[in-house]
């Protein structure tokens, strides 16, 4: 009795957030869905917007491939870093965590523009290269530069969940693996890696989701050949002025992201159930 009144009272504490969500997430989402299924001129129901996305299939595929590549690079680069940090003394761990988060304190736009300055044909890197008597390299306006920009911007989101998962592994489990005959390599593959799966999955989600919907990085570091979904959605609202098609694209992108999160959560949930104790 007492409990239920208490929880009823407490429930009201969430009211501001519920209202916020309703006003700025649920209602806009409904508007997006409405636009996606209506004609831009007549306002009648239509599937042509969704169908129209097929013209942009290559861009969708490219977005997925570029962000998958960036996510994998983040994983490969981030895992050893996260592992190394987890093995250090507590003070060092805190310091390095801070350093990893430091770029996140700097404006995203500024960080991307800084890369433009570095990679440009007449940029800092190419100036160094030409000064050494070599011919300048095409460092910018290609997929590589876009992937680099995404890796640079999203790497902390990979390292932090990985670090948190790895540092939670009970050191006795590692000793137990050694006790049962595992050398360093097999201790890693049989115990450390399986136990860091929740971190790997949340890292993948945290990098892939913003990467696949990014638009600024590809504009600044890419070329017309590396346009991503985020860019064409932006252009539907700003340049081409076809918000209905833009809404349809956003919707499909959102569904793709949901699918990704859904799969991740399903695997993580099964896994964390076992890891819980």
């Amino acid at each position: 009795m007492k409990n239920s009144t208490f929880s009823r009272k407490r429930r009201w504490l969430s009211a501001p957030y519920v209202i916020w969500m309703l006003l700025f997430t649920i209602i806009p989402l409904c508007i997006v869905i409405y636009y996606a299924f209506t004609d831009s001129v007549t306002g009648a129901f239509t599937l042509s917007n969704i169908g129209g996305i097929l013209d942009y299939a290559t861009i969708f595929l490219r977005s997925i491939w570029l962000s998958v590549a960036a996510t994998l690079i983040c994983l490969v680069v981030g895992y050893p870093v996260a592992y190394a940090i987890s093995q250090m003394k507590p003070n060092m761990q805190r310091l390095l965590q801070l350093l990893i988060m430091l770029p996140m304190c700097m404006s995203f736009l500024l960080r991307t523009l800084a890369w433009v300055a570095l990679l440009e044909d007449t940029g800092i890197l190419n100036n160094v290269i030409t000064a050494l008597g070599l011919s300048p390299l095409p460092l910018i306006r290609n997929s590589g530069a876009v992937i680099l920009g995404m890796v640079y911007n999203y790497l902390p989101y990979m390292i932090l969940p990985l670090y948190s998962a790895i540092s939670k592994i009970n050191p006795r489990l590692i000793e137990a693996a050694e006790d049962l005959g595992c050398n360093k390599t097999r201790t890693f593959t049989k115990v450390i890696l399986p136990l860091s799966i929740p971190g790997i999955l949340s890292g993948i989600t945290m990098v892939f989701v913003p990467a696949v919907s990014t638009f600024y990085i590809s504009q600044k570091l890419g070329s017309p050949g590396t346009v991503m979904v985020g860019d064409i959605i932006e252009s539907q609202f700003k340049g081409a002025y076809n918000p209905n098609l833009g809404a349809a694209m956003s919707l499909i992108l959102m569904i793709l992201i949901f699918l990704c999160i859904g799969v991740t959560n399903k695997v993580t949930a099964n896994d964390s159930e076992e890891v819980a104790n």
Binding site: D179, L195, D271, V275, N277
Partner: peptide, 13 residues
Amino acid sequence: INTVFQNYALFPH
């Protein structure tokens, strides 16, 4: 030599 650890250290996965 094998060990039974304090708090067992069973593999949760």
